[in-house]
Amino acid sequence: MSTSPAVAPAERRLARRGSRRADDAFRLLSLAASLTVLVVLGLIAWSTTKEALPAFQEEGLGFVTSARWAPNEGAFGAWAFVFGTFFVSFIALVFAVPASIGIALFITELAPAPVRRVTTFVMDLLAAVPSVVFGLWGVSVLAVRAPGFYEAIGSPLSAIPGLGGAFEEPFNGKSFLTAGFILALLITPIITSITRDVFETTPRGQKEAALALGATRWEMIRGAVFPHSRAGVIGAVLLGLGRAMGETIAAALVIGAGAQTGLRLFASGDALAARIANEFGEATGTWRSALIGLGVVLFGMTILVNLAATAIVSRAGRKAG
């Protein structure tokens, strides 16, 4: 493809030598541009770790295992925020995954073409609204109305043996559940769009075969669409999880900034990104270094989740291809 014609007119040879040099220069330029990705990623890891080092050295392993975060006493344990990040992301997934699968099924299997276009457009709209706007709605509308509702559903549910503890007091408007719900709205478009793409790759023949055997639409979905898309959907869920863990602003506004590690849905908690956003402005010295350390921990966690997602999605893609 890149081989040039062997014979060129003599008068063009000189010009061609020039253009070959231009060719090489352009190739090197584009190579350099693509290597910036490598350089930037390396710099991110190196510079943030270096700034966080004082806090890491002071706390040792306690930085991630201790739940005591008291900047004015020099105690920096991030466990409560690691826990909060996972808890709130898990809540978000509980809302977002069934919703996304449902919407993706609606778009691929149920909706007639015009409705499908409108739904896709609305999902794009949902994806385009900046997360800070959802945060604003969460803090000034949802969190204000939520306590009454939480108390109404929490009081009876807390009587359930075993599970009841999750629904106990306090009933805070700014809580894990509120933040999880807002995060769910933010990650639903992402999970939906990947899930939809995966569903669409189900071979038409398999779906028609299921229907021809007398399957109802639901049986066709369960028998043909789901088995074909399992890996892709798991990948999509992991990508959504990565996004939820890194989402900062909406969580910072509605999670309530209470460092604690109880599995209580209606209690205020905190997550890594939210704590950084809320405290960084006033922090100095080891405190600031510890907040950058929170960023390093978050960076590591999201990279692991995203790598797992990419691996699963690409393996699913190879199998489908």
Partner: peptide
């Protein structure tokens, strides 16, 4: 790596 970079939380970009 650009896939990895796309997954880096935006607040980490700010810290960087």
């Amino acid at each position: 790596l650009s896939n990895v970079m796309a997954g880096v939380p935006s607040i980490v970009m700010g810290l960087f």
